[in-house]
Structure formats: C-alpha cells, structure tokens
C-alpha cells in the first residue's frame, strides 16, 4: 500500500507541474442558493460562481471539495483544503480559530419559518443547524433549541412537528416556504456578514482573495451575482 501511495503521489507530482498554484475550496454543498449539488452532481450556486470568479482574478487554479458542516473548520486547520467558502458568517468565536476575508455579502437578517404565524417563540421548540450563529443565538436567549446536522433536517423537523419553528438565513428559508410553511415577520440581525475562512498561518493567500473580493465590489460584479442568486442585500 505504501508503494501505491508513493506511486500516486509521484504521478500527481508530474501531472501537477507547470500549473499555477492550486487552491482547494471547501464547501458544504447543502445550502441553496449559497452552495448545493446540482443535477449533474457538481457544486453549484452563488458561492460556486463567486469562487470561480475570485480564483480567475487572483490567477489561481481552484478545486472544489465537499465537506460536512460539522467538521468544516477542523479539516481546514489540519490542511485538507485551503479555504472555506460555505455561507459562513464572520463571528468572534470563529475568528479566534481561523481568519476571515472581508465579507462578500453584507450582514443579513435571519428569519423564522413555522407551520403557522401565531407561534410563541419563547415557549416553543426552535430548530437550527448545529454550530451556526442561529443555534448560538437561540441558546443565548434561553429558548428550547434542537440542533440538526444539515439545513434540510431543520426544516423537516418543523414540517413533522418536532420543532415549532426554524431559525436560519432568510435567503435559505425563502427557498423552502410554500403552502405548508410560513415565514414570521420577526427577524434577527446576527453575524457580521459572510466571508471566506483561512488558516491563521495563511495570511498570504487570504490577502489574494481579499483583493479579489475588493475588485469585484469595485466594479459591481459582486452585486450582480448577489442579485442573480438572491442570497442577500447588495453592497
């Protein structure tokens, strides 16, 4: 097996030569419209287009990697990929562990979705995805929180009555409201916008992407992308 690994490594080395620097982008692939897996089985969505454009501007070769949300930060710091681009809000807790670029979408309100609009949040059970700003917020309020590993499960919990409401990014919940679910009028302002995450030791790469995001902000192409995918308000 050892020789096999060495063999593939040698093969990879010869194949990778002559290319520009390769950067591996880690994302979740389960959070439409930010990032999701399309019919062809490829990563698609706002962040796919944004990431590809940023890589072009920074003159880097980029490769997309799918990773579970739960372990997305541990796998970044242990070096399995080089950056997180997964609708991750910039918060103080995360900033202690990894570093963020400037935000590429402005801070946007989180919203509640429930089966009926007259629900009492304080006495009810609120669903949120584990290790998100929304889960932290519900816990802080002292409300009853149930956490799920994927966004899909948080919505399913409201549908089958396990939870009374789900708290998540408004742009994601916009894609799920329909005949059986309604969005509450109450919103919460959480997080400091969405940015790309890097290892703290990787300031050089972070600088390149920071500059690329700035150039997309300056020429208005970032706003066009935001409008196209309806992920948030514009700059």
């Amino acid at each position: 097996m050892k020789s096999l690994i060495l063999g593939t490594a040698a093969l990879a080395l010869s194949a990778g030569m002559g290319l520009a620097e390769t950067v591996r982008l880690g994302t979740e692939g389960a959070y439409a419209p930010w990032n999701f897996v399309n019919d062809a089985g490829e990563i698609d969505g706002f962040e796919r287009e944004l990431g590809d454009e940023l890589c072009k501007r920074a003159e880097l070769t980029c490769e997309w990697v799918k990773n579970d949300w739960d372990s997305i930060i541990p796998n970044l710091v242990s070096g399995n990929y080089d950056t997180i681009i997964a609708g991750m809000s910039i918060t103080d807790e995360r900033d202690e562990v990894i570093d963020f670029t400037q935000p590429y979408t402005p801070p946007d309100p989180s919203a509640y979705v429930a089966q009926s609009a007259d629900i009492d949040l304080e006495s009810g059970v609120i669903a949120a995805q584990a290790t998100t700003i929304q889960a932290a917020f519900v816990a802080e309020q002292g409300w009853t929180l149930v956490e799920f590993a994927t966004p899909e499960e948080t919505v399913a919990a409201v549908r089958n009555g396990e939870a009374d409401a789900v708290l998540a990014d408004k742009s994601f919940l916009d894609t799920v409201v329909g005949d059986d679910l309604v969005m509450l009028e109450k919103t919460e302002a959480l997080g400091g916008g969405v940015g790309m995450g890097f290892r703290e030791s990787d300031a050089e790469l972070r600088g390149k992407f920071d500059a690329a995001i700035q150039s997309m902000k300056d020429d208005g192409s970032l706003n066009e992308l935001i409008a196209k995918w309806e992920v948030s308000s514009q700059w």
Binding site: I5, T8, A9, A12, A15, V23, T61, W64, D82
Partner: peptide, 14 residues
C-alpha cells in the same frame, strides 16, 4: 499528502 495540486480523484483515492 496528496499534493494540493493533484486532481480530486487522487485525494479521494487517498
């Protein structure tokens, strides 16, 4: 390991 420049299938095989 594998090199970041190697294609995704090498990472998956590893």
């Amino acid at each position: 390991l594998p090199l970041s420049a190697s294609p995704q299938w090498v990472h998956e095989t590893y």
